[in-house]
Amino acid sequence: MPPDWTRVGGYGAAALCAVYGSMKLAQALGANALADKDPLSPELHERLVARDPLFVASHWVLAGVAVVGVVVALATVRPWGVAVPRRLLLALAWAAGIFMIARSVGVVGFGFVPDALRLAGVVEVPAEHAALARELALWDLLLWSPFFLLWGTCWTTAAVRLRRVS
């Protein structure tokens, strides 16, 4: 029997959750780990770099959510996943996939479209923050948006497979 390539979505989502969670855990523990490249407003960016307690707490929460994401993603492809209600798995996989794809496109503020508009000068940025805005838009355009697009595609592939085999 040929391998089921649709399982790649679940394993890919789990792997990307682990990568993202590891980065957030490293940030929670004090490492930079690309924290200064997060696309945020200048005020929030300063708070992030200064290790504001709210951001440190958010890194711990996101690391925990990523662990849950690994388990959910693996539940879509592993035999023990049948113990988890299918509707719950489907809802979580679809929600994660749609949110991440929307984030990569720019529906939630940053993404391919807003970054391109910022870099093209269509979206005005205060002069005192222009260099930072350009740098963060480049990082988002070249790293974060493709990462979230891939991650969202993995989640939606896992959801499609799960719906098909249910």
Rank of each mutant, 00 (worst) to 15 (best):
F147T: 09
L143R: 05
V160F: 14
P79W: 14
V113S: 03
R161F: 06
A102W: 12
L117I: 02
R103D: 03
R118D: 08
G97K: 02
P114V: 12
L119H: 11
P85Y: 08
V77A: 07
A102F: 13
T157K: 00
P85I: 15
P114L: 13
P85V: 15
V123E: 10
T156G: 13
R164K: 10
T156W: 09
R118P: 00
R134P: 03
P146Y: 15
L90G: 05
V107G: 06
L149W: 14
D115C: 04
L149T: 07
V84P: 08
A91W: 15
F110T: 08
W144I: 10
T156P: 06
P114M: 13
E128P: 05
V165S: 08
V123L: 12
A102C: 08
A83W: 11
L92P: 03
R161A: 11
V105Q: 07
V123C: 00
W80A: 08
R118N: 09
R161V: 07
T153M: 08
L141I: 05
L136M: 10
R78F: 12
L132I: 05
L143S: 01
A130C: 03
A159T: 12
F112Q: 02
I101Y: 11
E124C: 05
R78E: 15
A159I: 11
A96E: 00
S104T: 08
G106F: 11
L132Q: 02
S166E: 08
V160S: 06
P126I: 12
V107F: 15
E128Q: 00
A120K: 04
T153A: 04
H129G: 02
L136A: 05
G109H: 10
C154R: 07
R86M: 06
R134A: 15
F112I: 08
A95K: 01
A120D: 12
P79A: 14
A131H: 09
W139C: 04
R86A: 14
V123Q: 05
F110M: 12
T76Y: 08
A159D: 06
P114K: 10
G106A: 05
V108L: 14
R164M: 09
V108D: 12
I101Q: 01
A133M: 13
T156F: 14
V82M: 03
A131Q: 14
R118W: 13
A95T: 11
A120M: 07
A133W: 06
H129Y: 03
R103G: 03
P79C: 10
V77G: 01
A83F: 05
G97V: 03
T157F: 00
T153N: 06
W144F: 03
I101D: 02
L142A: 11
P85E: 04
G81M: 13
A158R: 09
F148P: 02
A158G: 04
G97S: 03
R103K: 10
A83N: 04
P85H: 06
P79S: 14
I98S: 04
A133P: 00
V113T: 06
L141K: 10
D140S: 08
R78K: 15
V165R: 09
V160G: 03
M100C: 11
A83V: 13
A93I: 14
P114A: 06
P126K: 14
L88D: 12
R164E: 15
L141G: 06
R103I: 13
A158P: 01
W144L: 01
G121W: 01
R164C: 06
V84Y: 10
L90W: 10
V122Q: 01
W94H: 08
F110K: 06
F99S: 04
V165G: 00
V107R: 12
F147V: 09
G106W: 09
P126Q: 08
